[in-house]
Design a protein around this nucleic acid. Structure first.
Length: 583
RNA sequence: GCGCCUGUAGCUCAACCGGAUAGAGCAACGGCCUUCUAAGCCGUCGGUUGCAGGUUCGAGUCCUGCCAGGCGCGCCA
């Protein structure tokens, strides 16, 4: 509809220019927005305000001239001038109805799919040396929601779980693993690795207290890097266990990552020397205090001197910058990315600016490829400080999820005690996990946010339980009526304000998804679904569906309910929530 | 010191590319269950958008300067 209106306005502009009312150079991009207030119609443009000055006319006069020159269109019922010179468009009822019918008739809810792109999305990317903690939640959840949305819009998405499976701390872990293997049975060892966090602490303790152990650990790093077979075997064993922990968390969270999406830092080891050689060949590299660096003019350090990107240490070792460059090249070259999205902590903003600039400078990534760091803020506790356990340690993700489910179970069994135990458990899972995910997704990605169980599990406000509940209410209508959601027919009759408001919002699903995909901001979808759920609840209170006598109106309301249900369900699935039929 | 981010109602958060009267929820107060799930709906109260300038038809949004908080800044990732 926006495109359609823009075309109309451009046509009107052209005729005003042809008539000499507007100077030929006065044309500029037409901006059209949805109105916030129903009294301003459905869409508005500020074009008359923008062009008033170059045209030498009063905005309202220009608006009037534009309206007079506007071609007729059956989708537009009325055009008005309002305020200082806004042009307001009122959508024709028939047109809205046809949009609703189109959505209802299509498995994809008539969401348009644009030109498909190959989008590489880097998200989750935990460090395998430790267990996943709350710091990994945001990347994992937000990245997954955006990935699902991109796929729904028809893009080819390549997930990249860039796990930390390399680095000096592995020497310590392998030394400890080796030591324990000799002292314990396989079963004991497996149990011990079950608590990776404890395993890491124990290894660290050994490292700190025993010089002998530390020496062995450092030796193992060298052997590992040299490709020693025994050492690699140990390393793989360790990573397998660690990865299986991650996968358990993903499964529990309902995140779409699988083992085949893992491509860790170590995957680029063989390419690192080549990256440095290529940078040298391009003449980008210079040595500084023994390290191989690239200096780019736009990056300055604290003294105003050029800030280096170090790609090789003085001792010959490589760094994460080197790995990231290799990954950029792989994603552009081998994976054929048109777009790369990095869901990584905001604190690495400078690093990514440098990487992106350098990757293009070095020709590792084509100029046209979009590189975007989708940074996010910190997850804080109710005190506004970084989320920690009572004794100040990091909170394991799995513990957080356990608590969420327990709390949800308590709430669910209180409200719906009549359901059987299995169903209570499964509802508690959807509600508890959904609440944690939704609390994160519904906030603006770039800012810090406060994690609060009570708030996210509340049935009121912009929460997962509220959305899930709204969906069960629609589902319940159809269950009660003994009808399938696709067994509705007839024409829409939207007479009540509540019906119209809901309908008008429902047809915006596609544009919302488009902005989620463009900006990597799932909170836009959350806000939309919350809105739809609220409008439905209002409709549900004010417009009886099943008990109404008029059969045509009943069908219309059933259709509206069906489209609401499908939109809510699809939206929740894109966010990675599990819609429930009952709760 | 330089750079990035943040500052919106008592609290938690919104506000699409600069657009019309800055919106929700919680909390407080008041209504609505013989009728499709009240985990709901309807209403009242609550704001100098950190401060001061500027740009313009119009600024929470853009620019400048302050104030407050967070983060980053050469061989960790």
């Amino acid at each position: 509809m926006k495109e359609r209106l823009i075309a109309l306005i451009e046509s009107a502009l052209d005729s005003l220019i042809a008539a000499g009312t507007l100077p030929a150079d006065a044309k500029r991009p037409v901006q059209i927005d949805r109105t916030k207030d129903k009294s301003h119609g459905d869409f508005a443009t500020n074009i008359a305000l923008m062009l008033a000055k170059p045209a030498g006319m009063k905005p309202r006069d220009l608006a009037e001239a534009l309206i007079a020159a506007l071609p007729a269109d059956s989708a537009v019922a009325k055009v008005d001038i309002a305020g200082p010179g806004f042009i307001n468009f009122f959508q024709a009822e028939d047109f809205l109805n046809s949009q609703l019918d189109a959505a209802l008739a299509d498995a994809h809810l008539a969401v348009p799919r644009g030109a498909p792109q190959t989008v590489v999305v880097d998200y989750s990317s935990p460090n395998l040396a430790k267990e996943m903690h709350v710091g990994h939640l945001r990347s994992t959840i937000i990245g997954d929601a955006v990935v699902r949305t991109l796929e729904f819009l028809g893009h080819q998405v390549v997930r990249q779980n860039h796990v930390g499976d390399w680095g000096t701390q592995f020497g310590m872990l392998l030394a400890y693993l080796d030591e324990q293997k000799h002292e314990e049975s396989a079963a004991e060892l497996s149990r011990e690795l079950g608590d990776l966090e404890g395993f890491y602490r124990a290894a660290k303790q050994r490292f700190d207290e025993s010089e002998d152990f530390a020496t062995r650990a450092r030796g193992l790093v060298v052997k590992l890097q040299a490709g020693d077979a025994d050492c690699l075997k140990l390393w793989r064993e360790f990573n397998d266990v660690s990865l299986s922990h991650c996968q358990a968390v993903y499964d529990r969270l309902g995140v779409s990552l699988t083992p085949s999406d893992v491509r860790g830092e170590s995957a680029y080891n063989d390419d690192l020397a080549q990256v440095v050689a290529d940078l040298t060949a391009k003449g980008l590299l210079s040595e500084d205090q023994g390290a191989q660096c690239v200096f780019m003019d736009q990056f300055k350090n604290k003294d105003g001197d050029p800030l280096p990107v170090i790609v090789q240490k003085a001792d010959g070792g490589y760094l994460y910058a080197t790995t990231d460059l290799a990954a950029l090249r792989y994603r552009a070259g081998t994976l054929g990315a048109d777009r790369m999205l990095y869901f990584v902590d905001q604190r690495q903003a400078l690093h990514f600016q440098q990487m992106f600039a350098l990757a293009k400078l070095a020709g590792f990534v084509p100029e046209a490829t979009e590189l975007a760091h989708m940074g996010f803020g910190t997850m804080n506790g109710p005190d506004g400080r970084p989320f920690k356990t009572r004794d100040g340690g990091t909170v394991k993700l799995i513990d957080l999820l356990d608590e969420a489910e327990q709390r949800a179970y308590a709430l669910v069994s209180e409200k719906s005690g009549e359901l059987d135990e299995d169903e209570l458990r499964s509802i508690a899972r959807a509600v508890g996990i959904g609440a944690v995910k939704y609390a994160d997704l519904s906030k603006n990605r770039s800012s810090d946010y406060i994690f609060n169980f009570d708030q996210m599990l509340s049935f009121e406000g912009n929460t997962a339980p509220y959305l899930l509940y709204a969906y069960t209410r629609v589902a319940s209508v159809f269950r009660k009526a003994g009808l399938a959601m696709d067994a509705v027919s007839g024409d829409f009759q939207l007479n009540d304000d509540a019906e119209q408001a809901l309908a008008a919002r429902l047809v915006q699903f596609g544009e919302v998804l488009q902005s989620v995909a463009d900006k990597g901001q799932p909170h836009l979808l959350c806000a939309y679904l919350y809105d739809v759920a609220g409008l439905f609840s209002s409709f549900y209170e004010h417009c009886p569906i099943l008990s109404i006598d008029d059969p045509a109106l009943k069908q219309s309301r059933l259709k509206l309910a069906a489209l609401t249900a499908r939109t809510l369900k699809q939206g929740m699935e894109l966010l990675g929530l599990s819609p429930l039929e009952r709760m």
